[in-house]
């Protein structure tokens, strides 16, 4: 399928109540208003402090369509945290490690999303030493263009506040 040239890909972050049919209800307005659903990302097991489920949706739409979609979602009482104006184009992977990271992971991730322009795409935890021991997590972030350096600096800061260490990637194109 080809998309008309004025369509861009927007990332919409939602918080859904934990009840049957919520995801379907949230996706409906996208099609209704001409948006084309590109991906739905749901980090398993991650909950907001209220117990809602964070879901991230990539939608191809024109900016008018996006406005209509967001209005419709809000009218349906669905929480829209963020409707990106720009497609996330830079991706980066980092590894965090430290004592007790396994028990602290969810809060650490929320803190990363709250303080940076990045979205956590994927997380893999390895806690081979058992609960509370030294654990590692590989996190895959999607971030807005030209914010990688800033994101990594914030990541370092968050990690150090939590007594964790970060293994950063080399900047794009380096080391290849």
């Amino acid at each position: 399928m080809t998309e008309s040239v004025d369509k861009q890909i927007y990332t919409v972050r939602l918080e859904l109540r934990d009840r049957p049919g919520e995801l379907r209800r949230a996706l409906e307005p996208i099609a209704t208003h001409g948006g084309n659903l590109r991906s739905v990302f749901h980090e398993r097991g991650n909950r907001t402090p209220r117990g809602d489920i964070p879901v991230e949706v990539d939608v191809a739409a024109s900016s008018e369509q996006l406005d209509a979609i967001v209005s419709a979602l809000r009218a349906d009482d669905i929480t829209v945290i963020k409707a990106g104006t720009q497609r996330y184009t830079e991706e980066l992977t980092a590894i965090l490690f430290g004592q007790g990271l396994d028990t602290d992971l969810s809060e650490t991730l929320s803190s990363i999303e709250a303080s940076t322009a990045a979205t956590v795409r994927d997380v893999t935890l390895a806690a081979t030493e058992g609960a509370g021991g030294t654990a590692s997590a590989r996190i895959h972030l999607a971030t807005e263009p030209d914010t990688t350096t800033e994101t990594l600096a914030t990541l370092r800061e968050i990690a150090s506040q939590r007594g964790l260490a970060v293994v950063e990637p080399l900047a794009a194109g380096e080391g290849s």
Binding site: T93, I95, F97, T124, A126, A127, T128, E129, T134, A135, S136, A137, R138, H140, A165, V167, P169
Partner: peptide, 15 residues
């Protein structure tokens, strides 16, 4: 301080 698990995760991701 790098745990073996960090290297394992890196490797799983092609790094």
């Amino acid at each position: 301080d790098i745990p073996a698990s960090a290297l394992e995760l890196a490797q799983q991701g092609g790094s």
